[in-house]
Every structure is written in C-alpha cells, then in structure tokens.
C-alpha cells in the first residue's frame, strides 16, 4: 500500500442479521489530504461505511485499512488511537446528554491526557468558531437542533483531527450555517486534512467540486475525480 493512502476499503460487504445487505463488495482508496464525498440515497450504506472506517463495526467480508492497519486485526490501542485522530460527525449527533457543551468537547481532550489549560483554550477556540461560546454551560437538550449539530461538528474539530468523517453534517442546518460548515470543511481540507463527507445533499456536493463516490443499494456505481451528484 502506498504511504499516501490513508484509508483503503477492499471488497467489503456488510450483512446485518438476518438478511439486510448494507454494502456489497465495496472497494476504494482515499489518499491523505483528499476531500471525498460519498453520496447516495438514504439506506444506500453511507453510515455503515462510516462505522466500518471508524472500527465501530466489522465487515462481514473484505478488509478496511486505516493508515495501513487492517482494522479486523487491529488491537485495542490501535483502535483507540484511530478514534482519537478521526473527527467524526454523526448523523444523530451522538452527544453526551449528561455533559455540558464545554464538557462534550473537553471529554475528548481529557481522554487524550491533555492539560486543563490547553483544553480550555482549544474548546473555547472551537466554540467560538461554531458560534456556541455563550452556550458552553448548557446541556445538549437545552440547544436547538441546529446548535446540537454545530456542537457535533465542534466536537469533531476540537481534537485537531487528521481525518474528518462527516455523516450528513448539514442535515438540520439553515442555509447560512450549511454554507459555513461546508466552507469550514473545505478550509480544513486546504490545511491538509482528509475530509470524507457522507451526504445525500446534491447541492453541496456539486458546489464542492471534489471526488465523488456514488453508492446505490450498497454498491459503488461511480467514483469520479471532480464528480457530481448523479443518481
């Protein structure tokens, strides 16, 4: 495997019990610093793919590599390191409901053993960027849906990730914040971070003008360099 390839998905299929096939023999590679949109209708297998890349699930067959490590064979420490270097934005946010906005972000840095002073600085920088500074003491249930989504994005960014996996990151955002988030992801990509955007939003994919992998019923039907959302 070449050194610039950060993620490699090789003949991956995923079948959920008893017989729901989420992915069928999917293969592709993502290079470091790439911006890739993985598009498809709801149920096409985008979220399943994200879960496999984050080692939250195992493929039924095939292999997923992250920085050359076969995730099927990775040990606990390697999986933890992977999750600490990937900023993940989940469709359903996956926020800590019993922690404040500040704690939702600080927890990730506390896990990594970062000092309190550094944590405070980094968390407030990201909250500032996402316009959530005045909500730092609120709990997620006290936020609007759009604010919760921004918090989910902030959480992905606070660890200064090498890779960002964003599963429908603009689903609940108004056009202004949608534009903001996409611009932010593009900016991160320009700074050298790898961005994987999983979405069914045609408009944002076409505006980004980067590589597009199209999934239909769990199969890759198209993989184009400067692709468009065509289903």
């Amino acid at each position: 495997m070449g050194s610039s390839i950060i993620i490699k998905v090789e003949n991956v299929s995923k079948i959920y019990y008893p017989a729901i096939t989420a992915l069928r023999n999917v293969s592709f590679e993502i290079e470091e610093g790439e911006f890739v949109s993985i598009v498809g209708k709801s149920g096409a297998g985008k979220t399943t793919l994200a879960r496999l890349i984050l080692a939250l699930d195992e493929p039924s067959s095939g292999r997923v590599y992250f920085k050359g490590i076969d995730l099927n064979l990775a040990n606990e420490q390697e999986i933890q390191d992977l999750r600490r270097t990937v900023g993940a934005i989940y469709q359903d946010y996956r926020l800590f409901n019993k922690k404040t906005v500040f704690e939702n972000l600080s927890y990730l840095l506390e896990v990594a053993g970062i000092s309190e002073r550094e944590i405070k600085k980094r968390v407030f920088d990201v909250l500032d960027l996402m316009g959530l500074t005045d909500k730092s003491d609120n709990f997620p249930f006290q936020l609007s849906s759009g604010e919760q989504q921004r918090l989910a994005i902030a959480r992905a960014l606070v660890i200064s990730p090498q890779v960002i996996i964003a599963d429908e990151p603009t689903g609940n955002l108004d056009p202004y914040h949608t534009h903001e988030v996409i611009s932010l992801l593009k900016k991160m990509n320009e700074e050298g971070k790898t961005v994987i955007l999983l979405t069914h939003n045609r408009e944002i994919v076409n505006r980004v003008k980067k590589r597009v992998i199209t999934l239909v019923e769990g199969k890759v039907i198209r993989d184009e360099k400067e692709g468009k959302f065509i289903i």
């Binding site: 984050l54 939250l56 606990e76 999986i79 933890q80 390191d81 992977l82 999750r83 600490r84 993940a88 996956r94 926020l95 800590f96 927890y107 990730l108 896990v111 990594a112 959480r155």
Partner: peptide, 10 residues
Amino acid sequence: EIMKMVGASR
C-alpha cells in the same frame, strides 16, 4: 457507546 467512539480507554 459514545465514550468508546471517541477513543476512551476501557
């Protein structure tokens, strides 16, 4: 589950 997702050790 979320703690595991963000890389917290056991």
